[in-house]
Amino acid sequence: MKKTTALKIVVMVILALIIPLFKDVSSGLLSIMSTVLIYAIYGMGYDILYGYTNQTSYGHSLFLGLGAYGFLLSVRNMNADFFIALLIGVAVVTVAAIAIGLFAVRMEESYFVITTIILVWIGYYLAMNMVNITGGDDGLSMTLPPISLGFISFSLYDPLIGYYVFLSFFAVVLVVLERIVSSPLGKVFIAVRTNPNRVEFLGYNLFYCKFIAFVISAVIAGLAGSLLAVRFRYASATYFNITYSALPIIWTVLGGAGTLWGALIGAAIYLLFVYFVSAWWANYLILFGALLITVMKFSPKGILGIIKKKISWG
């Protein structure tokens, strides 16, 4: 068995079995790890876009916010079931991603970045302004529907059940994305990152490949948004804020772009740091800014890149 595979299994075992053991020691850890898993889903989706096809979107919080509100509003207004609400949230994001991708992905790299910035601001302004629908800055809360699988139903109010729900979503997304990445389409994604011109010479439709990657990552971001609404039983217009667009960039770059797992590492470092440090130092973002620059300058492959190098050497 390859060492990296063994490492992945160890991480999954820790996530599934070890961390819940600490729930009596510190209830904070379980809730942080729930958020870490959701953020990791968001980050992995972003990694498909940035790490695999080298398209830098600075507007993914648009999809995060739409996913969160898609879930929340369908629960609040239509009393929807958990999975129906999730489906609605993801469907809304898919439509938005296709509509935006059709014109944004065609653009040259720099135009693409700037267009995503503009779109996320439009989303933020609208969400802040339509207070009667979105609740604006204060946001809206909801009562969570139970998850019913036909024969049994769970209440999401138990933090341990919540944790396992998020963990299973994380595992499903991870498996699906790893399948995509190792499929022929995934190989073309990597080719798009390495040399887009050659992809076109070889007869692939460059726009189509980039578009698929864009939609996949947006849909995953929407799923993460819905789960975030579940996690906090709440959504507010701040989910649309551009800060939430910068976060997945920080996580993927910090953890290692183009690895999928990097997002988990980045998100875990970020959240644990915020949890323990923000209490006594409010300007912790300065450190993440500096970290981003340092990682880009000295180890563009991120933390996982360093680990992989060590493993292949030893």
């Binding site: 830098t56 981003l292 620059i293 300058k297």
Partner: peptide, 8 residues
């Protein structure tokens, strides 16, 4: 990405 870091 560098400029996002710098902006923060």
């Amino acid at each position: 990405i560098l400029s996002i870091g710098l902006a923060l």
